[in-house]
Every structure is written in C-alpha cells, then in structure tokens.
C-alpha cells in the first residue's frame, strides 16, 4: 500500500442494502434490489432477485437464472475467476472461495488500496468447486458462521462412512439426508461416489434442477433419480436427499421408515442435532471451521479485518490476540443456512 493509498473505510462501507463500494457505485450481495450488484455466490441470502446490473462468475449467473428466471437481473454480466474488470476507478476480480460451485471472493483494487470480501468460504478440498485462493489485502472482510473453537469439522470421508455404515446396519430403513439445495446436495453425492457408493441416489424434487445444472457444468454425480413417484418398496435401504425441512413435511410419508440424517456443520453440537430430531448427524460443512478461519486470517495478513455474519465475538477476540486490527461488521439479513 503506497503512502497515498486511501484507507479502505473511506471507499467501502455498510448501508441498509448491504456492503457498498462508493467509487465503483455497486453493492456486494445486496439485501434488496439495487442498480448495480456484485454477487459472491448463488445461495438465496446472498444472490437475490430484482437487481439492475449483476456481475458474478458464469456459474453463479447460471444458478441465478435457474432460480429466478427473468428476475435474475436486468443485465447479467459474467466474469471468470482471475479476470479483471474496471468499474469506474475500481478494478474488480473474482477469485475462487471454495464454498459452492461458482462461489467467489471479491477482490477490489482502488488507487493502491485493496479490499477482499471473502463471501462464504471453506478451505478443505471440495470436488464440486474450485479451491479458495488466498490473496493479501489491506482490508479482509471475512464470514464467521462457525467462528467458535468448538467447530472443527471432521474429515468428510469419516462422515460419509457413518452414513454408509448405518445403511448396512439398518438396511430396511430409508436414509433421508437433509441437505441444502445448492452445494451440499451435490457435494454429498460426489463424496458418496468417491466412497464407492454406486447405487442410485434419490432426490427430492426441489433438488433436481440444481443437480442437473451441476452435471451440465461438468460435475459428475452418478445415477440420480427423483424420489417423488418412486415406489415405496424401492426406497427401502436407499439414500434420499431432500431439503432439511422435508422430514417434517407430509412429503416424507412416502418414505419407508425414514431415518433422518442431516449434513451440516451445525451437526457438530449434539444438543442442536437432537433438538432438531436428527438421528444421524453428519458434520459436513461448506463453511470454514475455526481452524480454517484463523489460518486464513494468518495467511491473508490483512492490515485490517472486518468480521461479518456468524459468531463474530470469538473470532474478533482471537484476531486481536494474533495481532490484527479487527471489528465486527453488522450485516443483517444473512442466514445461518448451510
């Protein structure tokens, strides 16, 4: 950063609509429609409908079109990972965030000052999306969904083994796994295939479109069949993927003796899993755990750190101990959705 470079807080700030880049005149993941938006990834709490110009990775644009059709935005512009686009005096680049297909960190360079907005991210390998690329920054704005040291996600294959072991132990029961529509569903499918599970996996109707989109984008998911309409008998001992709310809905009555599992970082806390009626918690998360969060801060070495949505307090404290200047950025409207 040169002496003359402006301090980040002079050109980027929070507003009612979300994070706003003043010289570029655009918002990042705005909460309600704005003229110009840059979107980190396709989850509904980050990518909303109804914006004017939308800039995102080609994958995220495709996801928004699938979800919102014509409502995805008046003008949709794609920017591939690593390419630069100058908006007014601000150079915008998108770098992989490792969260879901198409997810990006937003790197903004303005007169020698650099801000990196992490969006949602994780650091462990995910076969369904490109890995996070750390980038040095004057200001790093990080998520903190799992910003407590009790969140250390176990290896994915260990969790998938739990599911497969349960299937062999209780072969009469249909294993209903709650997964988020975008990302978690497809990642669980790929992890199952990597563990050698070649049987068809049945999915709830709400997951079909996104699953097909992943396939079109080159992510092979193996045999996937719609659960709706499958004969009850055929679902015995099968894996059925569905949104996390499905077990509570009459839809699930078509399933033979369902064993309710859920794939989420929140499953790490027993009381939380039990309270949700989960019989088989699978700790599989698309967000960075505590170790990933702190290691990323150490790697990015930001001049300043802003911490947003999640358990900010512990991460701010830890960043302070690590010698970083850090503050909480109260961005409302993002969910704990996993």
């Amino acid at each position: 950063m040169s002496i003359a470079a402006p301090r980040p807080e002079t050109w980027i700030r929070t507003t009612a609509a979300g994070l706003y880049c003043e010289p570029g005149d655009f918002y990042i993941d705005p909460r309600h429609p704005v003229p110009r938006a840059v979107i980190t990834h396709g989850h509904g709490d980050h990518a909303r409908a109804g914006n004017g110009q939308v800039l995102a990775t080609p994958e995220t644009i495709a996801i928004m079109q699938l979800r919102y059709g014509d409502g995805a935005g008046a003008v949709l512009q794609t920017l591939s990972y690593g390419e630069a686009l100058t908006i007014n005096a601000v150079v915008v680049r998108l770098l992989p965030a490792g969260h879901v297909l198409g997810s990006a960190q937003i790197v903004l360079d303005y007169r020698g000052s650099r801000v990196v907005v992490s969006g949602d991210y994780k650091r462990r390998a995910d076969p369904t999306c490109a890995p996070f690329e750390p980038q040095s920054a004057d200001l790093f704005i990080t998520e903190a969904t799992f910003g407590l040291p009790v969140f250390r996600h176990p290896p994915d294959d260990q969790e998938i083994d739990k599911l497969l072991h349960s299937l062999t132990l209780l072969p009469e029961r249909c294993h209903l796994v709650g997964v988020y529509v975008l990302g978690k569903c497809q990642r669980v499918l790929v992890l199952l295939r990597r563990a050698g599970y070649e049987e068809p996996v049945y999915v709830h109707g709400a997951l079909l479109g996104m699953t097909e989109l992943y396939e079109r984008m080159g992510v092979a998911l193996g045999p996937v069949l719609p659960a709706t309409g499958a004969p009850r008998e055929a679902l015995k001992g099968r894996i059925v993927l569905a949104p996390p709310t499905a077990p509570a809905e009459p839809w699930s009555r078509r399933l033979p003796d369902p064993l309710v599992a859920q794939a989420s970082g929140w499953m790490r806390v027993r009381q939380r899993a039990k309270a949700g009626g989960i019989e088989l918690p699978l700790v599989i998360s698309d967000h960075a755990d505590w170790d990933e969060l702190t290691a990323t801060i150490e790697e990015v070495k930001p001049g300043e750190l802003w911490v947003t949505h999640g358990a900010e307090e512990a991460l701010l404290y830890q960043a302070g101990k690590m010698g970083f200047r850090a503050r909480a950025l109260s961005l409302v409207g993002y969910e704990d959705e996993e």
Binding site: L148, V150, V269, R270, A314
Partner: peptide, 19 residues
C-alpha cells in the same frame, strides 16, 4: 474467554470440552 463463549453456545460442559 474462548472457552466461556463456546460454553455459552454449546450449553453442556462435557460436550464443550470434547469439541
């Protein structure tokens, strides 16, 4: 401090310690 914040969130001593 980190322990207390975690314990507040988890609510059970054995589980907090194990995690």
């Amino acid at each position: 401090t980190l322990f207390d914040l975690s314990y507040d969130f988890v609510g059970d001593l054995a589980e907090t310690v194990s995690l």
